[in-house]
Design a binder for these strands. Sequence first.
DNA 1: TCTGGGGTCCTAGGACCC
DNA 2: TCTGGGGTCCTAGGACCC
Length: 381
Amino acid sequence: MSTERRIAHLDMDAFYASVELLRYPELRGQAVVIGGISGQPQRNADGSLSFARLRDYTGRGVITTSTYEARALGVFSAMGTMKAAKLAPDAVLLPVDFDSYRHYSRLFKAAVRNICPLIEDRGIDEIYIDLSEHPEQTLALAKTIKQAVNEATGLSCSIGIAPNKLLAKICSELDKPDGITIIGMDDIATRIWPLAVKKINGIGPKANAKLAALGIHTIAELAQADADLLQTNFGRTYAAWLLQVAHGRDERAVTTSSESKSISRETTFERDLHAVQDREILSGIFTRLCTKLAADLVRKGYLCKTIGIKLRYDDFRTVTRDLTLPSPTADATAIRRAAAECIRRVALDRRLRLLGVRASALSKSDGLQQYDAAAQGELGF
DNA sequence: TCTGGGGTCCTAGGACCC
DNA sequence: TCTGGGGTCCTAGGACCC
């Protein structure tokens, strides 16, 4: 007997902002944005806190999250902070505190895992859950999960439940915040087809613009699109995928574990830097990035065989170079040497706004491999 | 007043090997 | 001389996601 799967997508509501409201409950109900600034709110003489306002901010950076009150003013994730300041000058601006968000992330995931262990991590604030084998009835189970998350964290989340990950992901957004949406394949025409194609996870700004140029705006229009037309414009693989997802078809499994493919560190400078005039500053930043990357590798138990760099010029053009080493490493000096080789292969005639270093072709630095490395060292390799 | 930082996956050409 | 083929690795760039 074959039955439909029950896949849930759980998405924490305005996660970073909501964590900050746990810490500063006096801000509840206000427009609050989380962005790339440093420094905690100042404590006044009377004991109250003094919060920075968006209008006071002058540096570069983007909004990472905003409360629903700020969203009502048009301020969303990934918006430039300066643009956000124009829209909501009085909004409270708080610095990001990833340690705190990771803490609450662990709490909510542990709470869900207690109820159903088949969890796929999709970043700090969302997960897929395979509920297919769970005995409880779907709506009751969703309520149980939401309550467990709230008891563990004090936070709310939204859950979509559907026969696959694609549909579950779309559903979790349909009743945000604090919602539950359950659909089956029979509901696709009424619930999914009216939506914009960009609601599909995997259709981003570029594909959305190309589809719009073809007169395709809704998922219904995509489902009825001519296969040859799509193939001409998107290539065989992507065109076939577009038609599949438009009909709500997705067979991907919920995968409970995965190995990292790459680890990287990058930084955008406070002002654009020049390779010659700012050589000392750049060199220091470069060394620190390599040192942090090496520490990340060691902490996570990886060696890397390929080292890469990323530069972004003042005109926002981005270039990458990489270099594969004869043998894997997690050594900061070796990483810096390889990254410096990469830097030599790019033009440094313009000012730079970003520098990054990446480690890929990862392998586990388990005991056996460490032993091998030590043995090779003794043999003079 | 432009545009963070950390990832994944895909494509495509060339090298190199059998 | 007429340019096979597949497989894998390396490199660069780009789309997309959280």
